[in-house]
């Protein structure tokens, strides 16, 4: 079949317009919701260690803002002057950075995460990694000998319940990812119930923080129903394997999140290939049905259709 040439046929006097409607789901409002969802964890952190935690959070926020300004100057127009998303990342960094990190370590960690996990690729939505996971992965790899790996604060899991419900109910994070994580946890802990009981608050809190705020990041996770679940499941399994390999809990959680993020595009690809294969099969079946219909009509001595070459078609 010859395809007709495509030519834009704009009719004169018709100016394309945007919709008079505007969705409430603007990027900054979504970031604001993430900020609100972080409130319980931040509250606990401030309550436990007010001066130290706020100092770290302030430093991280300042660093992220500095990178934002620098990249805006280098590659205009790259985003707004100030972004709430950066604040979200700053709080997450502050919640996870180990307690004995000095200023030098913090600067390197945050800069690496921000530059390589986010800005070099064009900002949020262009990279497939979460900048916090990237930065923390780098830190735990580079400064592992100097750090004790204990985060500044420990947040009870119960305090994360409400944010989890809020974020899933407005569909900013996928409930399938959370279910995947839970499924892996239940399956693996069922084998050794004593182990979970022996965990300290810091351990369970770190795992829950990483699982809820970093693994579920839609920009760094699966993008189909099946791959979202698989991504959560993979994170859970990897975290447990790394814990058993005697990694401490923060390193295990971050490394598991990093590896799961790296394999998320592969999971997506597999799911999409499967769906595309099914679509191809369906098209094939349709073609066969048409050929069968034409053959059957030919045997009966009539033509069911349609084209100009079939003049005497039966009506």
């Amino acid at each position: 079949m010859n395809l007709p040439e495509w030519r834009p046929g704009h009719t004169s006097g018709n100016t394309p317009v945007t919709s008079p409607l505007t969705s409430v789901w603007q990027a900054e409002r979504i970031a604001l919701l993430w900020l609100l969802a972080l409130a319980p964890a931040v509250g606990f952190a401030i309550w436990q260690e007010p001066a130290g935690w706020l100092r770290t959070a302030f430093l991280v926020a300042l660093l992220l803002q500095a990178w934002q300004l620098l990249f805006r100057l280098m590659l205009p127009p790259a985003g707004a002057l100030f972004s709430i998303q950066d604040l979200v990342h700053a709080l997450l960094f502050a919640l996870l950075l180990p307690v004995d990190f000095g200023i030098r370590e913090i600067v390197f960690t945050v800069s690496f995460g921000s530059v390589f996990g986010d800005r070099l690729f064009g900002g949020r939505g262009f990279s497939f990694l979460n900048p916090v996971v990237t930065g923390m992965g780098f830190a735990l790899f580079t400064f592992s000998s100097t750090s004790s790996d204990i985060p500044l604060s420990a947040v009870p899991i119960a305090a994360l319940l409400i944010p989890a419900i809020v974020l899933t109910s407005v569909e900013l994070i996928s409930i399938r990812t959370l279910l995947g994580i839970l499924a892996s946890a239940v399956f693996l802990l069922a084998g050794s119930p004593g182990e979970a009981a022996s965990w300290q608050l810091e351990q369970s809190s770190t795992l829950a923080l990483v699982a809820l705020y970093l693994v579920t990041d839609p920009a760094a996770g699966g993008s189909t129903d099946a791959s979202r679940f698989a991504h959560g499941l993979l994170f859970g399994v990897l975290a447990m394997v790394l814990l058993h390999a005697d990694q401490d809990v923060l390193a295990a959680a971050i490394n598991a999140a990093l590896l799961a993020s790296l394999s998320a595009p592969l999971l997506d690809h597999l799911v999409v290939q499967m769906l595309a294969y099914r679509r191809g099969q369906r098209l094939l079946l349709q073609r066969r049905a048409v050929v069968d219909a034409v053959m059957a009509a030919g045997k009966e001595g009539r033509s069911p259709a349609a084209g100009p070459e079939r003049d005497q078609a039966d009506v």
Binding site: G125, E171, L172, P218, S223, D225, V272, R279
Partner: peptide
Amino acid sequence: AAEPRFDRISALSMP
């Protein structure tokens, strides 16, 4: 943006 909300409004046969 890859939020799961896209899937809720989309009635396409592909994700």
